[in-house]
């Protein structure tokens, strides 16, 4: 039919749009997109703009960044953040794997363990910090038990230093890492392991050569999200750590700039720095992940 031919040759916007799935239904996206535009994208751009306009105008556009990186105390907050966030995320992910492997099938008590693990996650960092500040105190139950058992002679100093923050992030981060790993591992078809088993693979071989490679992309995401949680350690760093010393992390530095000094410009600059470092790590992990096997984990006919 000739009319179809002409419309195919001359560019018809309406049919091109329809072919690419653009129609009135997309209007349903508008409210959500506008909300994100107004309260996420615009503030982020505005904050970045603000960070280049320091309160002291004469220090120039890069004034905030120069004073941040020029000050050893401020610069160290980057190292402090990484020193807490990296080990915590790694421990959480690697501790989650064996337990998730163990609980991937129907095991008695699985639902109970899952439910109990959700509790620290939903209680949140503030409550866990409040509880830990009494529990880990020199006269708290933890030290008392170790002293009574004769494991230590002196109470361990676990508060107002690096360890308090680490412990609180393990308590809130591990359940998250575990539940996420469990949901990834449940997506791996058990038939694959069964097949390996018939070929004589031991349980370690099945894990090492089948489950683990299929799980690694999921572990990368689990690591990233745990890293995000650990990167914003604000309440635990303030309540359990030493926010003036080795727990002076980026989140604390940013919050201090806004709460103590009302310096929105400096606070925005620190947010930009935090976001840049955090996204750099996430991007690095995701790039490494894209080199891994990323096919189906469901087995099936193919």
């Amino acid at each position: 039919m000739s009319s179809v031919d002409t419309s195919a040759r001359t560019f018809n916007l309406k049919s091109w749009l329809a072919e690419h799935g653009v129609d009135r239904l997309l209007f349903l996206l508008v409210p959500a997109f506008l909300a994100m535009l107004a309260f996420f994208i615009y503030p982020t751009i505005y904050g970045t703009y603000l960070s280049f306009h320091p309160m002291e105008a004469k220090s120039g556009a890069l004034g905030n960044y120069r004073s941040f990186f020029g000050d050893t105390y401020m610069r160290n907050s980057i190292w402090n953040t990484f020193r807490i966030a990296l080990p915590v995320s790694l421990i959480n992910v690697f501790a989650a794997v064996p337990l998730a492997v163990r609980l991937r099938h129907r095991v008695r008590g699985k639902r109970t363990i899952n439910t109990l693990l959700v509790i620290p996650m939903s209680l949140g960092t503030v409550l866990i910090a409040e509880g830990l500040s009494a529990y880990l105190a020199p006269n708290g139950w933890f030290n008392r038990t170790l002293l009574a058992a004769g494991i230590i002679d002196q109470p361990l100093q676990l508060l107002h230093n690096f360890w308090g923050v680490i412990i609180s992030l393990l308590i809130t981060g591990f359940p998250f890492a575990f539940l996420l790993t469990l949901s990834y591992i449940s997506g791996i078809n058990p038939k694959m392991e069964e097949a390996a088993s018939t070929l004589g693979a031991t349980s370690w071989q099945r894990f090492r050569y089948i489950t683990f490679p299929l799980l690694t992309p999921g572990l990368a995401i689990t690591f990233c999200l745990n890293f995000v949680l650990a990167f914003s350690v604000f309440p635990s760093a303030n309540l359990l750590g030493n926010p003036a010393g080795d727990s002076h992390v980026l989140a604390v530095a940013a919050a201090q700039a806004i709460v103590n000094n009302y310096d929105y410009s400096m606070a925005s600059a620190i947010s930009v720095i935090t976001g840049a470092f955090e996204l750099a790590v996430v991007a690095l992990v995701l790039v490494m992940r894209s080199r891994l096997y990323s096919g189906s984990t469901s087995g099936g006919k193919g």
């Binding site: 996420f40 603000l50 949680l229 955090e278």
Partner: peptide, 24 residues
């Protein structure tokens, strides 16, 4: 790109976008 704008708030620590958001 649209998906990315929905994913970023989950991939960023809340305090990072919270400060510009609070300012706004």
């Amino acid at each position: 790109i649209l998906m990315l704008s929905f994913l970023l708030p989950i991939m960023l620590p809340p305090i990072t976008y919270g400060i510009p958001l609070a300012t706004f």
